[in-house]
Write a protein that binds this DNA or RNA. Structure first.
Lengths: 341, 341
DNA sequence: ATCGTGTTCGGGAACGATTGCACAAAAATA
DNA sequence: TATTTTTGTGCAATCGTTCCCGAACACGAT
């Protein structure tokens, strides 16, 4: 604000009052006469006075703004979740600051620290695929920064969490593939230490087990960078194709991996598409337009964002320190041929 | 920052110095003895001191942060542009704050004003499809807020601008369709008062003219909300299908409209796809997976973001008031069958 | 006449950092 | 030895706002 130099002082000077009186008049302080209040508010209105949020932040040590950290906004799941968060924050009078970690731990730390030093009142974060050590977050949380984890969470931090039912989503997708007659189902997933990776892997295994299909280690491909670089996916695909017994279906655990895998197959072995069935987690709005059709496990991203923001604001505005935390689990949807299955 | 209470005062007290000395020692002031400097910096390091950006913003009336306003982050073009902006800002020591207008004028104004009051050092903005009146931006610009417009610009504001060569992009796409043998080419576009709409429409018209094809008013469909609601697109599609002489190709001027149109046709008249050719502006990373294949006009979004941020930072850091402004025009690419045409 | 008791307002200290100016002590010069 | 210069440090104002205290005044009760 190098401009908008209308301050409370200007009002005070113009009206022959003190800054304290003006401040109280504007805040509706009970100790100010109706008349003064009227004069002040009318004048403030006239000269278009806006309180300086920076000065307020310095004084109040809060900012009415909330920090969001995701790995990529160019990811349908996250952009939808952010929209959900915004919608709740907006009505509650908070602003949001969106940052991206690009799946890198150092960027994540930098973002979080910058947000914290900027006095965000709270933090919504989905961990990067590199984030194995979350002690920096833990410290901040201990110092009193309200945090709500969503999507990629960690048991290291005791706070509210919002996740999709990853186990069930993975189970349903795998189960669907099996019921279509597939028996050799591969699994593409991301970094092994992400919460979602484990949960989805378990769902996949459980579905196999329930149908008496043996689990094959070779069929599981971890792409540590979560689809950030296509090369990783290409390599995994090649490995799969090099197997004696090629898989006849693939279940993919991540949005970017799903499209990445389609690209890879299309590029490396387009004929392989015939007969193979692919199901994967994705919140893309255009899955129904995909040529090798894909069965989508869709997360309620918008609702997850809303829930996370609601929990965070509750945490921020709670008078008492909150000690009971909840993990909200939202159900996924299996989308087959553009309709709910 | 309700925690991280390590301030310059704490250091001063602990070391028996004044705050001014500590400040100067940390800043590397030439007037401080080497010994004191060392003591101070070492102690600051030890207790992990971080200067409070809020206090700095208040004092310096700048924040080393840059505001970005786009209509939707869930749009490939914008998320890619944002990545370009971030990359430049990051190396120059600036942070970015991303906000969304959701194609609404009131949200845009709210975002801009919030950013300005938060002392952003500059603003990068692509106008919403509702933004006909930009006087609020003009005022801010006059007051000294550095602004760079990108993508959807306006001639109302005299400043740096970064756009794609929309005319040529549209011309190339239309020309491509014509050369494939199509003569009845419809045009889907968004709000009429957006700069990009006009430029792309002109490119479309010019290509028709150059090939001696008459311009048909009925073939042009304006979707004012830019693809935010699918209904609008469905209606436009129906109108097109109801024509006596149905178009045999469509050129689409917007990312969301392109996919929206594919959805519409797929839903309303799937058989219509046979023989019809679609070309459209889109920065989707998955166009090659689309079933009704689409010829894409791809904007160099990342580079546009970089250019815009470079120009803005230049504006911010310029000692002299800048009076000469440039409009940087970047070339689009026609992507046919997943490769540059 | 004195003492509460409101009511309405102003003074001034915070919040964290920078910085012009003043001032001391030490060093250099006359 | 006296004076000037250099060097290192502190004081206090500033940014815009809030809020604790206290001041001034009026009014009714004692």
């Amino acid at each position: 604000m190098r401009f908008n130099t209308v301050t409370i002082k200007d009002i005070a000077k113009a009206l022959g009052l003190s800054t304290s009186t003006v401040s109280r008049a504007l805040r509706g302080g009970y100790e100010i006469s109706e008349e003064t209040k009227k004069t002040v508010t009318e004048y403030a209105e006239k000269i278009n006075y806006r309180p300086n949020p920076i000065a307020l932040s310095l004084k109040e040590r809060r900012s009415y703004s909330i920090g969001i950290v995701v790995c990529e906004i160019a990811n349908n799941f996250f952009s939808q979740a952010i929209n959900g968060m915004e919608s709740v924050a907006y009505t509650a009078g908070y602003n949001v600051t969106i940052t991206q970690s690009h799946e890198r731990f150092d960027r994540e730390v930098l973002n979080v620290e910058h947000l914290a030093s900027r006095s965000v009142d709270g933090l919504l974060i989905s961990l990067s695929s590199e984030s194995a050590d979350v002690s920096y977050l833990k410290d901040l949380h201990k110092k009193g920064l309200p945090i709500v984890l969503f999507d990629r969470v960690t048991s290291e931090i005791d706070t509210h969490k919002v996740i999709a039912d990853n186990f069930k989503g993975a189970y349903d997708a795998t189960d669907y593939l099996i019921k279509l007659g597939h028996k050799r189902i591969a699994h593409f997933t991301s970094s092994a230490h992400l919460s979602v990776t484990g949960e989805r892997l378990e769902g996949y295994k459980a579905a196999l087990r329930d149908h008496g299909i043996p689990f094959n280690e070779d069929f599981v491909k971890f792409c540590g960078h979560g689809g950030i670089n296509q090369e990783e996916i290409d390599d995994a695909t090649k490995e799969l194709l090099a197997l004696n017994e090629r898989p006849d279906a693939i279940f993919i655990a991540q949005d970017k991996l799903s499209t990445g895998c389609l690209h890879a197959i299309k590029k490396i072995a387009p004929d392989y598409f015939t007969g193979i069935k692919i199901a994967g987690f994705t919140n893309s709005n255009v899955v129904d337009l995909f040529n090798p059709p894909i069965t989508a496990v869709r997360q309620p991203a918008f609702e997850m964002g809303q829930a996370a923001m609601e929990l965070l604001i509750h945490l921020i505005e709670s008078k008492m320190p909150v000690t009971e935390f909840e993990t909200r689990i939202l159900q996924t949807q299996l989308i087959v041929n553009n309709s709910k299955y």
